[in-house]
Design a protein around this nucleic acid. Sequence first.
DNA 1: TTGTACGCGTTATCAG
DNA 2: CTGATAACGCGTACAA
Lengths: 339, 339
Amino acid sequence: MKPLPTLADVACLAQVSTATVSRVLNAPDRVREETRRRVQEAVAQLGYTPNFGARALASNRTRTVGAVIPTMENAIFARGLQALQEELARADVTLLVATSNYDPAREEAQIRTLLGRGVEGLVLIGEEREAHVYDLIRQRGIPAVLVWTWRADCPWPCVGFDNRASARSIAERALALGHRRIAMIAGVTAGNDRARQRVEGVREALEAAGLRLDGDLLVEAEYSLAAGRDAALGLLARRPRPTALVCGNDVLAAGAVAAAREAGLDVPGDVSVSGFDDIDLAKVVYPPIATVHVPHRRMGLSAARLLLALDAGERRPESRRFDTEIVEGGSLGPAPAER
Amino acid sequence: MKPLPTLADVACLAQVSTATVSRVLNAPDRVREETRRRVQEAVAQLGYTPNFGARALASNRTRTVGAVIPTMENAIFARGLQALQEELARADVTLLVATSNYDPAREEAQIRTLLGRGVEGLVLIGEEREAHVYDLIRQRGIPAVLVWTWRADCPWPCVGFDNRASARSIAERALALGHRRIAMIAGVTAGNDRARQRVEGVREALEAAGLRLDGDLLVEAEYSLAAGRDAALGLLARRPRPTALVCGNDVLAAGAVAAAREAGLDVPGDVSVSGFDDIDLAKVVYPPIATVHVPHRRMGLSAARLLLALDAGERRPESRRFDTEIVEGGSLGPAPAER
DNA sequence: TTGTACGCGTTATCAG
DNA sequence: CTGATAACGCGTACAA
C-alpha cells in the first residue's frame, strides 16, 4: 500500500509551492499560464487526486449533500434520486445516499453519519420523525428538505404533493365507477406518514359516500409483490367480495392483479385494482394499472434547486407543491352489476 | 451557522484532555469507567459527532468502500447493492454509491472522486474499462472487486457469473423448443461487456445449430421499456417474422411482450420472448417472462465479504463464480407450426 | 490511567 | 503572480 501522492509531491515535481498547486486546482485564473501547465502536467503524471478529508478540514466546506431513503430495492425513489443527483452534479455537488430500511432508528443513525461526513444539506423522505432528530439537524444549522410529502404549515421546506388528497381522488374515481365494496391494501403505516395519509384519503372519500373503511376491508402489507398478492388473496376471499382493491402503491397493486388472476377472477370484470406512484411497473402489468402519477424527477430536481438556493444564502425558499394526476388504466373499470 | 462542537469542546466540558476523549470514542476499555461516563455525558450534551475528514486525515483510515454502478433508475443493481451495503454495515463500513450512466468517462471520474474520498475498496460492474483506470486503482493499492461478470483468468477478483454461457443456455432452450427464426434485442454493447457477452452467447448457440444471428435479426436498445417495445415492433415487422425474441434483459423483454400485444400477436402462441436477470418485473408481466436467474443478493454479499477479507489482509481471495439458472415462464413456448 | 505535542493534506492569509 | 506558514479536528507516540 504505497502512499498516495499529495499536494506537496505535485509541488515538488512542478517546482512550485503547495500554495500554487492549490490555486491551480481551485482558482486557475490566478496562476500564470505556463506555471499552470507545468502543475497540471505534474498532477497528471502522478495521478494526483485531492484528499477530500484534508480539503474539507481546511476549507470547512464539502460541497456534499446527503439523502436518506427507505430502500434502494425498488424503483420508487430511484428516479427522483437520479434527478437529484444529476442536478447537484451540475453544481459540482456530490450526493451521498444512505438507506434506512423504513426503520426510524436506522434513519437517525444514517443522518448522524452524514452529518459527521460534513454534508451541507439533507434530503429526507416524508415528515414523520422524532423531534430530537429535527433538533439535531437544526442545531447543525444545515438546510434540510422533505420530499414526497407536502403540508401547508410544515416547518421545514417540502417538495412533494398531498398524499391524502391524491389518494382521495383515486378512491373517488372508483366510487364514480359504481364501486361500493371497496377494500384497501395499504403500505405499512407505522413510521410512514405517506402511507398513513393515503389511507386517510381513501377513508375520507369512502365516508363522504356514506361508506366505511373498517378493519375488515383494510389491510397493511409490506412493500413487495408477494405481500400484495397475499393481502389481495385474503381480501378476495371475503364475502361479499370487494369489487375494487385500492392499493397504497403500484407494487402492491401488481401483486393484487396477480392474485386476482390466480383466483380465477377477471380484472376489471370481476374486481378492479388501483395503484399509486406510477412507476414503470404499472404500465407493464396487464391490464395496465390505473394509478396516481407522481412527478418523481421533478421532485428530485426541485429538491436540488431548493438546496442549492439555500446554500447560496437564500433565506426562506418556498416549499414546492406538485399536483398529481390520475393515470387511467385497464385495471380499474365499472363495478360489476349486482346479481 | 454555528460551529460544530469539536473534540476539544468535549474535552473542556468533561475536564479531560482531547486524548482521553479520543480514547473513549475509539478504545473505551483504556479509560477508567468514571472518566468514560463523564466524557460520554459531555458528548451527548453537546451532540458531538466526530469530524470524518479529520479522523481520516489523522488515522489514515476511512472504513469506507465505494461502488460505481451504471444507474439507479432501474432495479437491476439495487438488490445486490442493498445486500452489499447491509453486509458492509455489519462490519461498520460505509458504502458510497456513485453512478456512471453507462459512460466510461463518467465512471472514471466517479472512481477518482471516490479515491479522493479515501475509499478503502471499490466495487465495479463488469470488466471492460480502459487500462489506465486499472492502473489508477492499482497505483492506489486498494482492493477492487468486479461484479456481474466472471472470467477464468481475470486479473482482478470477480464475483459474478458467465454471461456468455448463461445467454447461450437460454438461447438453446429456445432452439430446443423448435424455434429457428430467432432474433435478439440486446442491450447497448458499447462499453458494456455484459451486454456483449450475452450477444456472443446467443450467437454461439445459434451457430451451433447452423443458424446465424446477422444484422437483420440483432438490434441493440437502451435500457428501457420503450426502447424494448420499439425494437420489438421493428423485428416483428420483418418477414418472415421471427418466432422468438431473445432479449438481453428483462426490461427489454417486458417491452417486447407489450409490443407483441400491440401488434395483435399472442405470446407465446405467435412469438416467444425471453429475458435475462430475473428482476421482479419478469414475474409480473403476463405471461411471466422466461428468464435467467442471477443471484443479485448473493453477489452483493459475496463482494462485501471478499472486500472485507482483503481489508483484513488476506492475500489472494478467490474469485467467486455463481451459477445461473433458467426460470421457466409462459412467455417462452414451442415454436408455432409452419403454415 | 491520563496528558502533551506532533503530524496528517489542504486552504487561506499575508508578505514578497 | 508566487511562496511561507498558520490553522482545520483528530489520532497516537511518548511521557508522566
